[in-house]
Design a protein around this nucleic acid. Structure first.
Lengths: 202, 202
DNA sequence: GTCTATACCCAGATAGAC
DNA sequence: GTCTATCTGGGTATAGAC
């Protein structure tokens, strides 16, 4: 592992523990085992370390994320199975310790980091919600759910519960065993979704 | 308004905008119109300003919050009405600008502020969830909802959606009009709850 | 690429005159 | 209670030798 990677990993670790503002370049350098000034041979500034962390996360997330609509054409094989695929795609990312740590960083820093806020709002929130809306419209056309329910409300009710579980884990209960959380996320989301699905299915 | 109150209000405002770590005593003093050293005649440290902000919030919240079980004995007058009472209690607090700002502070700082984390976990999350669980058990005994559904899952599915709306507003969409948000919270929560209630009511 | 040395700035906090 | 002055420490970042 080269020095740049070491700096990257140590930064991810420290930022996720203490938050960006409470970690200094000195502290990162010490943990890596080099002097502060050497950091600047690899990253021009502290902020650019943060930027590269987000870039890494976005690239990895988008590359392995299974687009919602892609799967939705296989709806015939069952709603449960379809839902599980989407959840697995996300959950498998969280099992990676580094991705899990960055998830916490994003949740912590989004309130003042514009890039993270945009990513959270556009990719994690809006894209997913829109995917669910499309799916529910498809289900309406296939007479799987009631015609007169609001697709957007349905999508939000489905999805935002799971997002709160994420916030709860990373902010309120952190640090806890990630694997235990991913299992809980799976079970609770499934129960939640069944509850709602029950009230609109035909 | 005395100096101590001015310091308090300016701190609430600045902390809610930029976060605790990005606001300095100097900045607070400048905004108040006094010198840094004068701050220390009113608060022994920066951290104690933060503590007093949380204390204020807790006192105000708990004093006006309508305990969930208190209302639940009037269940006969209708589930919708009961739910609305609880939401109103919380929403009316958020219409107070100062309380709204402190809500954002708590959501921002909980990841590293132990007292805020405990308040969020115990009062905002667990107490409410337990209240809902009691309510659903009561509804089961009155044959209003199905006996074989899981009260805890039901409580979490109900409540955590609303909590995400809170996070979404204060972290992802902030600053936006608070009144608009409170109205949205009202409508969306109600729709959400009807969706779930539909699938378990008798 | 890593080091030593240092520039420069701003943080939280205190002492003591008025 | 407010001020001026100051302490002490730590922050990000750069210059230039090796």
């Amino acid at each position: 592992m080269n020095t740049r990677e070491k700096i990257f990993n140590v930064s991810v670790d420290l930022f996720s523990r203490y938050g960006y503002d409470r970690v200094s370049i000195r502290q990162i350098a010490k943990e890596v085992g080099i002097k502060e000034s050497s950091i600047y041979n690899h990253f021009k500034s502290k902020e650019l370390i943060m930027d590269s962390i987000l870039d890494y996360y976005i690239t990895k997330m988008l590359s392995e994320d299974i687009p919602l609509m892609q799967a939705s054409f296989n709806l015939d094989i069952g709603f449960d199975y379809f839902y599980e695929m989407g959840l697995n795609a996300f959950a498998s990312q969280l099992k990676d310790k580094r991705m899990s740590k960055i998830t916490r960083i994003i949740l912590i820093e989004s309130y003042h980091n514009e890039k993270m806020k945009v990513f959270l709002r556009e990719r994690i929130l809006n894209d997913a919600i829109n995917g669910w809306i499309d799916l529910f419209n498809l289900m309406k056309s296939k007479k799987l759910i009631l015609e007169d329910c609001n697709s957007r409300q349905l999508a939000e009710s489905f999805y935002k519960y799971g997002l709160f579980l994420l916030y709860e884990h990373y902010i309120i209960n952190y640090p806890e065993d990630d694997k235990k959380f991913v299992e809980e996320l799976r079970v609770k989301s499934k129960n939640h979704i069944r509850l709602i699905y029950n009230s609109v299915k035909i």
